[in-house]
Design a protein around this nucleic acid. Sequence first.
DNA 1: CATGAATGAGAATTCATTCAT
DNA 2: TATGAATGAATTCTCATTCAT
Lengths: 228, 228, 228, 228
Amino acid sequence: MAYRQTAAVAERLADKRRLIVKAVRQVVAEVGFRDAQITMVVAASGISTGTVYRHFGSKAELYAEAVSVNSQYELDILMAIANSDGPAVDRIEDAIRVFASRALRVKRLAWAMIAEPVDAEVDVTRMKYRRAYGDMFRDLIEEGIAAGDLPPQNSAASAACFFGALIEGLIGPLAPGAARPTEESRLIDAIVTFCLRAIGTSPSDPLAQIGDKYGTVVPFSPGEDPSA
Amino acid sequence: MAYRQTAAVAERLADKRRLIVKAVRQVVAEVGFRDAQITMVVAASGISTGTVYRHFGSKAELYAEAVSVNSQYELDILMAIANSDGPAVDRIEDAIRVFASRALRVKRLAWAMIAEPVDAEVDVTRMKYRRAYGDMFRDLIEEGIAAGDLPPQNSAASAACFFGALIEGLIGPLAPGAARPTEESRLIDAIVTFCLRAIGTSPSDPLAQIGDKYGTVVPFSPGEDPSA
Amino acid sequence: MAYRQTAAVAERLADKRRLIVKAVRQVVAEVGFRDAQITMVVAASGISTGTVYRHFGSKAELYAEAVSVNSQYELDILMAIANSDGPAVDRIEDAIRVFASRALRVKRLAWAMIAEPVDAEVDVTRMKYRRAYGDMFRDLIEEGIAAGDLPPQNSAASAACFFGALIEGLIGPLAPGAARPTEESRLIDAIVTFCLRAIGTSPSDPLAQIGDKYGTVVPFSPGEDPSA
Amino acid sequence: MAYRQTAAVAERLADKRRLIVKAVRQVVAEVGFRDAQITMVVAASGISTGTVYRHFGSKAELYAEAVSVNSQYELDILMAIANSDGPAVDRIEDAIRVFASRALRVKRLAWAMIAEPVDAEVDVTRMKYRRAYGDMFRDLIEEGIAAGDLPPQNSAASAACFFGALIEGLIGPLAPGAARPTEESRLIDAIVTFCLRAIGTSPSDPLAQIGDKYGTVVPFSPGEDPSA
DNA sequence: CATGAATGAGAATTCATTCAT
DNA sequence: TATGAATGAATTCTCATTCAT
């Protein structure tokens, strides 16, 4: 019974952490890291300041965890695609499309998680995931080269550029007139074409629906709890 | 004599502005806009707080001017290339190389000027120049398409991706893995190859030295006074 | 118990507000609004800057509240007299005497609260109460006219002059010629005579002690907590 | 010739002082002492900061001189009336009317000169003139008493109240809806009646035009140079 | 453990006064 | 002597973090 209580307590603690991190995402999706204040997180989570500091040593630590949870969730989705069957070039295209369509749904948040400058401490985590994304694309590119579907190239540099192109093309200008659904898919098509050509291939079938292959793409909105 | 005095005074005033903006660049090159404080600028310039505020209405205004001066200087360099003779695709390649080699010398500063957002007020200026860079590349791409050297494409989207790839490939990782000179030129080559292929062409001659065509490329370091 | 805690907390919060406002009064009684600084209030209250700003949005808001609390307290005292029984002219006289004797005890503070302008924001509150004082006297004068005890007159103008005479006669000179107790009562008698004659009547009994009618007149000193 | 030069120089210096003081009046008429800054005075006078400080040791000294010049000018006007022929009560009435009509033309300035709180240093001068005004009225009241036209009274207190009533009635509320000319004369009548009754007499002839007795009353506007 | 009021170091900005030209 | 740019102490307000209840 003592054990069970402890377990229950641990569970409740974990719940609090999730709640807080979720609140960070809500806040960041609205105002970005720069203007996010602990006060806002407290208000959004319904949890007191003191409790936030019981769970996280500092603001930076909390934000770092938020970045970590979020990025890991997205990375998992991309990794599932990267590790699936089929030619590397196809998987690259699929990964781009999935990443793009998800990021477009929560531009501000996506940009904050990937590109917004933050404290050095938070940056460590952000960079870790950027590198993970980069490595993933690098590996896929190398697979493509090995398969003879892509020309020889500096795969690491390509992956970095690749990712930059994605971010900038999608959420960089930060205000591309909030494209309507149709325009959005065209934007994605243009970016996909660009990225694939950049590494030496071309879209297999611009009209193919990702949904056909990977099931419904759940939009990564602030309401979605990646840690649930 | 009255005139000469006035002129001299105006000169001294302009010098102060330059001195202050130069100090901002030094500071920003070290800690970025986010952590730059007026105190630091004051310390770096050897000028008092009051004087800073005599020349600039607010911190935001000062930073905006710093962005403006810097970006305009760089833009001018690129525009000179964009407006020179020869095939568009060659000019694109040259522009990339120049931009890349210059940015690599002052990574932190370059990244701050191009990618780091601060106040809304500063951001307006930053965005203005980002758009200017983007438009320049877009126009070049369209020239290339018209000349039949590039395939038809969404030139605006391409230009955005293009710029994103450049930034990310060069100064994105931020991790100061800071390549050594030799590696740097290889990094630039890789990025150039990537970017050109992305828009549907390839490097004319990866080994050509830009310096041969445009003279010595002055490194854009904080010590260099762009308004001099 | 939860309720009691909440109540206790609310009580403590209210206490802090009172403490801060009280400190403002102490400071203002010494140096006036013009030279009162948040630092002084902080020092006088033994409360930190942050806390002051937790309770009041700005310096102006705090000062406005100080004016409000103080003036309302004094106004209530006068209103009680104004609304009591007896001829209007007698109530006017009583009101003057009470106001005068109270103000004389804290000249600097009284003058600051009534006459010293500060920010526009504080001034709004100050004016609101000046008008309230004026309206009170105007209404009393009109009652007196209706009762046939006072001659017909522009009651609004009379009330304004009336109040001005009071302030000036009592606390205007500001020169701390600070009469001794005995002289004070003579000063008050002179002012009362002046004011009453000005509206067309005369003191009923210059020697009557207000204390006889309204009980002990609590001196309105900075140490007195009007919100307790 | 050396003498003549010196005299010319002295003249020029005096001119500068007048120019600066005049500028203070313009500025104060607009924003009051509280918000008047040396910068504004400099701008209004067309004279440099350094020169202002060559003529006046400090801001307080300058403002004190402005108060002095202005008040002395007005006092002279009133003294002329006070020292003229005729019954004291008539001269009192005339003085009130002149003071009132002049002050109404430049409310903000008049209020600043007479009632607005300022540095201790400036206040010394302000108080000196307030006392002078008070003494003048006190002497007139005593003359009236001696002549049997006024009842015995504390003439000093009466004079203070008197002056307070005037200020408050005229320019106290600071925003009495900017009365039109006709209303203004009625306001003055009401105040005159109040003040005279307060000391135990009544207006001789409310309709009499001051102009008939003392010639055109020059409005005391910021454009009028009292030291010229 | 949770709470949220209190803390206070720190940052931007102002403006009277000085002093090199 | 005049100028006005430069000075910098002083002031308000913020917000991450702590700790008594």
